[in-house]
Amino acid sequence: ITTFNAMQTALKDHMRQRSQTIAGIGHDLRTPLTRLRFRAEQAPEHVRDRMAADIEEMDTLIGQAMAYVKGQAAPERREALDLAVLAAECVDRFAETGADVVFSGHDPLPVLADPDALQRALDNLIGNALRYAGAARVVAHAEAGQALICVEDTGPGFPPEDLERVFDPFFRGERSRNRDTGGVGLGLAVARQAARAGGGDVILTLPEGGGVVARLTLPLAT
């Protein structure tokens, strides 16, 4: 028992040190980005927008990489929350920026999960739909004892053989090759990681009419 307790303590210390290291790396990487943003504002107009887009892409990459590694290292945190309300709030934030996204769902969906991790998951799923299709529909309802959020788009989709591969960190499918829509290959991995930490999952389906449906499920709290 003493040996087991010592191993458990050592593991907790390792995870804490790893989280601190990750936070430090994230801070160190974002500091030069802040300087680059300032310099971009002083750049000639014909290159300013492209510089700003590159900086935002780098910031997104850092944020998603940190979220993914933290999700692997951090202990699970669960709180009671309404998944439908959380999804509606995510949709509202996108809509406030002018995004073409709508929400449908009236019933509460009580779950036990990490609210910050779930918000990142939903942001990634909705952001993917908007990036690839220009519009998204988010539907919240209960199904077979599960809280279900469907993020639907009518974009170009991808080959059926990539349905699982797209969840691999840094995997970039066929439709991500265009720079205008290409992501950093971590959004879906982060979303699935968050859902599975709460006892659920994220899967993708390809409707016959085209597009992609991302289904995030979590067990309903009783």
Results as ranks from 00 to 15, higher is better:
I149H: 00
E56V: 04
P219L: 08
T97G: 15
L112P: 01
E152Q: 13
Y68K: 10
V212D: 00
L86P: 04
R192C: 02
Q20N: 05
A133N: 09
A73G: 02
G98E: 00
P207F: 06
F94M: 00
V139M: 11
R18W: 06
D162L: 10
N178W: 10
L163K: 12
Q8C: 00
T34C: 04
D116P: 02
D49W: 04
P169Q: 12
Q146Y: 09
A10H: 04
H46I: 06
L109P: 05
R196S: 11
V213I: 15
E96C: 08
D100N: 11
D168P: 00
E76V: 15
R172G: 06
E96T: 07
N5P: 08
C150R: 15
G26H: 02
G157P: 01
E208G: 09
R78I: 00
G157I: 01
P75D: 03
L130Q: 03
E76W: 05
V166D: 04
R35P: 01
T34F: 13
D100F: 01
E208Q: 07
A84Y: 05
I22Y: 03
G200T: 05
T31V: 14
E89D: 14
T154K: 08
L83Y: 08
I149Q: 00
T222H: 11
R172M: 14
R137M: 14
V202G: 12
I55Q: 08
A10T: 09
G155F: 06
A73F: 05
G145K: 11
L216R: 03
C150Y: 01
G145Y: 14
A221G: 01
G200W: 07
L112A: 14
S176K: 00
T222C: 09
E208A: 14
E57L: 13
A99G: 01
M7S: 12
R16I: 09
G182Q: 03
M66W: 07
V184R: 13
R196D: 01
A195E: 14
R172E: 06
A53W: 02
R131Q: 15
R78N: 10
I1A: 11
A88W: 00
G134F: 03
G187W: 01
T154G: 03
C150E: 15
E164I: 03
Q42A: 12
L188Q: 05
P159G: 04
Q72R: 08
N124G: 03
L148D: 04
Q64K: 10
G26Q: 07
P169E: 08
G105A: 10
A23D: 10
G26N: 03
L130W: 06
E41F: 00
G145D: 12
P160N: 02
R35L: 15
D168F: 00
Y68Q: 11
G211D: 05
V102G: 00
G211I: 04
P75Y: 05
I22A: 06
L61E: 12
